[in-house]
Each structure stands twice: as structure tokens, then as C-alpha cells.
């Protein structure tokens, strides 16, 4: 079975527990985190996580909804993109 991987992008004001909360949520939804990067860009905290969701029962739709709820409670914004989109837009 082909792997389904997604990029989770979290952005907003830096605060305690962002990585812990997001990774906890991904774990709960059966996603395997393969990579994490973070950086402050133009004064905004940006974190990206590459997660394998092949075995996640929630799928990208369920995961996006849960992430949106979490992000809202923390005053953050979150986006979730299939790896194929990032690959198409940034690699030839």
C-alpha cells in the first residue's frame, strides 16, 4: 500500500506546548510523525510536521477538523496539505 503523508503547518504566536499538543493529537489519530521543523519567520512562529497518515482511521478530513479545533483553542492557525501538493509546487 502506498504511503499517504501530509504536511501539518502551524503558525502564530510562539507559546508553550505547541509541539506537545500537536504531536499528541497526531498520535491520538494514528499518525506517525516523520519529521518536525520550526522557525520564526517575519515574527511569526512556524512549525511544519510531516506525518504518515496511512494507518489513521480519521484520514485527512478528520485530522484537519481536530487540528482546527486545537489551533482555535490555542489562538493559532493550522493548515494540512497532502505531500503531493508540496512536491508538485516546489519540485520539478
Amino acid at each position: 500500500m502506498e504511503k499517504e503523508r501530509v504536511f501539518v503547518v502551524v503558525l502564530g504566536k510562539d507559546q508553550k506546548g505547541i509541539i506537545a499538543q500537536v504531536s499528541g493529537l497526531l498520535f491520538k489519530h494514528g499518525a506517525n510523525i516523520e519529521d518536525v521543523q520550526q522557525k520564526v519567520m517575519d515574527g511569526t512562529f512556524v512549525m511544519t510536521m510531516l506525518a504518515d497518515i496511512t494507518e489513521s482511521a480519521s484520514g485527512s478530513a478528520g485530522l484537519r477538523q481536530a487540528l482546527n479545533e486545537l489551533a482555535e483553542s490555542m489562538g493559532l492557525k493550522v493548515m494540512l496539505h497532502n505531500e503531493a501538493v508540496i512536491k508538485a509546487m516546489h519540485r520539478i
Binding site: F7, V9, L11, E34, D35, Q37, Q38, K39, M41, V46, M47, T48, L50, M79, H81, V85, I86, K87, M89, H90
Partner: peptide, 13 residues
């Protein structure tokens, strides 16, 4: 990771 945080952020942004 094959993609930098800037690239992923660019698409999201």
C-alpha cells in the same frame, strides 16, 4: 525532510 519549512509555509501562506 526533503522540504524546507519555508517551502511548506509558502504554500500554506
Amino acid at each position: 525532510m526533503e522540504f524546507g519549512v519555508e517551502e511548506v509555509f509558502e504554500t500554506a501562506g
